[in-house]
């Protein structure tokens, strides 16, 4: 697999506060990378800088070997899925997916067709003429995903897309998202503060705290070889506790 995205010496300060301190990482073509960390650790800032919604204080971003950090967001060929869906409430589901396509000369002609195909993929064809507020949270997030997929981005960035959903919906959507990734082969970067989610979905996980990367590795390697005390204490302990309580629960159930 080739390098899709290379981030070099990324720094960001807000006033005197250093939010990102020298961030370096690489994402491979077709990879699913999670960024895991508590709120305020700088993970959303990374995502917004990658997209171009925020400007870095220093550092470079290369996509397919090209420096992109001077480009406007739309020119980066990336998609962004927001935590609170941010749908166009006045438009129908179909209208939401179609809108950006219609604004592009080269896609205008096929806008309807592409939009319908995307809604079919996320399983919302039957709701296409409804307004977003008539849908459940999970369905609304699917609309947002379809809206992003429609422009066929190279990389999709997810900013805690499931944090407002209930556990059941989250489980289904997780599986669906993995399916989509397989189908399109799109590179995905996924932000979460939920260890379970990160471990269940990712090819690799990037563990962050206070603007520093503590470890980037596969879920298995992180569990087997935690890089430092932070990873050990806050990530692994947590995951192990969850597993233990599940085992206990299964055991007591047997008795």
């Amino acid at each position: 697999m080739s390098d899709k995205l290379v981030v070099k010496n990324l720094k960001k300060t807000f006033g005197k506060r250093e939010v990102l301190k020298d961030i370096n990482f690489t994402v491979k073509e077709g990879e699913f990378l999670s960024i895991l960390g508590p709120s305020g650790c700088g993970k959303t800032t990374i995502l917004r800088i990658l997209m171009g919604l925020e400007t870095q204080t220093a550092g470079e971003i290369h996509k397919d070997g090209e420096e992109i950090s001077k480009l406007v967001p739309a020119a980066r060929k990336m998609g962004f899925v927001f935590q609170n869906y941010a749908l166009f409430e006045n438009m129908t589901v179909l209208g939401n997916v179609e809108y950006a396509l219609k604004k592009r000369k080269e896609l205008k002609k096929d806008a309807r067709e592409i939009a319908e195909k995307m809604l079919d993929i996320v399983g919302l064809s039957e709701h296409k003429n409804r307004k977003p507020h008539k849908l459940s949270g999970g369905q609304q997030q699917r609309v947002a995903i379809a809206r992003t997929l429609a422009l066929n981005p190279d990389i999709i960035l997810f900013d805690e897309p499931m944090s407002a959903l209930d556990v059941d919906t989250r489980m289904t959507l997780r599986a669906e998202l993995k399916e989509l990734q397989k189908k399109f082969g799109t590179t995905m970067i996924y932000i979460t503060h939920d260890q379970e989610e990160a471990f269940a979905m990712s090819d690799r996980i990037m563990v962050m705290n206070e603007g520093i990367i503590h470890q980037i590795d596969t879920p298995k390697n992180i569990i087997d070889n935690p890089a430092d005390e932070y990873v050990e204490r806050f990530v692994i302990k947590n995951i192990k506790m969850k597993i233990d309580s599940l085992i206990q629960f299964v055991d007591t159930d047997k008795e």
Partner: peptide, 20 residues
């Protein structure tokens, strides 16, 4: 986030104002 959505999808602010 509506204006940011516009940015990521390549829709100008003016259109987000007018259409949304």
């Amino acid at each position: 986030n509506l204006e940011y959505v516009g940015k990521t999808l390549g829709i100008r602010r003016l259109f987000i104002l007018k259409d949304v």
